[in-house]
Write a protein that binds this DNA or RNA. Structure first.
Lengths: 202, 202, 202, 202
DNA sequence: GATGAATGAGCTTTCATTCAT
DNA sequence: TATGAATGAAAGCTCATTCAT
């Protein structure tokens, strides 16, 4: 099954933006990597910046949708946080380039576009904030600085995208579970009675 | 006390590289921020890339020297790791822009320069690796994947540079201690009997 | 017949490089003379230096090919030398700008490019050297310093590019014949019995 | 005896202008070659262009003065031409860099300066023109195109600066005599009865 | 006499993008 | 759909020169 041209361009952009940065990647680099002329490129994207924004929004939307699906109607804040962490870690391990782009290149976007991306990110992070806040409210979590804790946990998990290798010694499931444990400990929950079994889902 | 021009240029670069990225920062931006003409800029730097490399090396050397000073002749691996984490967190909280530049812009450097910077970073990280390895060897730490643990901890601490604000609710000392606790837990040490009192030093 | 753009650029470069020198000619001068923007210029050339090298190689290749065609299978060294001189003079009179560029700007080229151009020039000059050497070997020529003689003759003929004007009082044929006579005298041959009739060809 | 600084600058300029061309030589190159700072350079020269003009004028004035001294009050046009050629050849062999600068870089000069240099050159060349004209008028020379002949002879001799090496197989005296012979033959004089003995003088 | 500091103007080249075909 | 041609703007950097010290 031949790869859709638009998708080829997207992948080229993901590869190059992650490796050399948005400003370090020229339109000619994208064209070459996509096996297209620079002019043809513009049949498949609006502008370089829109291409970047599309990648970011796609990544964040997937994350947000998955996270929403996995936490909706889940009462226990510990289970919610655990699932969020596992999903986040898995996503950053599997799509390190997309997630690094989201993490590193937001400053590039023009204000209007940036707002739309940041809004998505905020929606996603509010799932984390809610889980933490609910845990604190119900007495399951104890943390003096919920906001700080949320950010610290998020950044810790983001880091996975910068070092995880599927060829390494650790399985993705173990990794995700390990990070979930660390997170629950960080909010003062008792992860030794694991809130739920190994979740494979994403 | 008037600020040395060379230092003014360095600060301008730190500010702009951190905010807009190396490739997103033009030589004219640097000149304006330094209150210099673009031509004058070149009295105080070799090239834009050398300026970047100098900033990176300066940051890493300071970190390496401080870390070495604080861990040399310290037997206990838990104390060493604790001090490394605290220093790292403090440095990333106090110099978030320098450290983010080190973390984000290494790919920009030409191979030869990159090697020199990476060598410094490796020297620094080997202090972490040694502490973890010694702890494991002496049975104080238990971690199945020392390499992964080191990277995960480093990235967790790096994250501080991306969110910490001195105007926030958490003091730098509390933050550093907190991260040290998390780190010791992550390697299976027992931080409840804190390996040493609150160290204020850097 | 409209002039190919690439050729327009080449002619502009020939005109300007000859008049103001390579380093004295800016990319903006070339663009203006070619009726192109500076950016468009780069559709038709690799770089300013490659444009120069192309001009040089084109000129030398034409000269080499013509010279080879006119001297191959010619036994008599006097006839060969005579033809080489006439061709050289004619070429320098007709294409004074190209030939002056070849003569004046070789030092500009980067080492690798320079080697390729010098190799062409050496191939061409070896035709002269062979003619002289064969003439000496067969006793037709007498010159104590064949290498010096070759260089002196070449430089004498190169000079034509610096002063000949088609509006002057001397026809190109007369000029070429005259130089051939001088050359044969210089190697001690007897040109009064002209080695061949007036050759109009090139 | 230490070398006067002004003279050191002049020699540096001669070396570099000859090797890389006027426009190919930067003020920094000159400073480095002179062991001076760029600012100090301006104590010893007016501007880069004036330095060039000074070199040219110096070279031409020396040539003109020597030529005048050697031909004044000499009746025989053959002797005059012979001496002019010998002097010219010797000068171009001994000072190939200065003479090449005169030959190659006149187009660089601003109109006013150029006029002053060209005036000197014209004065010098008029000695040649006079010798040829007198020879033709008195019937000693026969050449249908005196102007062309003068230019061709001059260029032939100029060529010496581009190839002569003092380490070569030919002495300077032989070379100069040889060129004088060629020149006299070219104007139809009979050099076999050499117009005068070997002149060593310059 | 010597020079670090400074600069406006300029350099060659590349940028992202458009458009006619 | 695809692309050669085209470009205004900007990139990083160097130019020759001046001047206060």
């Amino acid at each position: 099954m031949a790869l859709d041209t638009r998708e080829r361009v997207r992948r080229a952009a993901v590869k190059l933006f992650a490796a050399k940065g948005f400003h370090g990647t020229g339109i000619r680099d994208l064209a070459q990597e996509s096996n297209l002329s620079t002019a043809s490129l513009y049949h498949y994207m609006g502008s370089k910046e829109e291409l970047l924004a599309d990648i970011m929004r796609g990544c964040l939307r997937t994350l947000l949708d998955s996270a929403t699906a996995q936490t909706t109607d889940v009462e226990d804040p510990a289970i919610r946080l655990s699932r969020l962490v596992k999903l986040h870690v898995r996503t950053h391990a599997r799509l390190p380039r997309e997630t690094r782009i989201v993490d590193h290149e937001i400053h590039v976007l023009a204000p209007a576009t940036r707002r739309s991306v940041v809004a998505l990110r905020d929606s996603y992070e509010s799932l984390w904030a809610d889980a933490v806040a609910d845990g604190v409210a119900s007495g399951v979590f104890t943390t003096a600085h919920p906001g700080v804790t949320r950010l610290a946990l998020l950044e810790m998990c983001n880091g996975v995208a910068r070092w995880y290798s599927p060829r390494g010694s650790m399985s993705l499931d173990d990794l995700a579970s390990h990070y979930a444990d660390v997170a629950l400990r960080a909010v003062g929950a008792c992860p030794q009675r694991s809130p739920e079994g190994q979740s494979k889902g994403e």
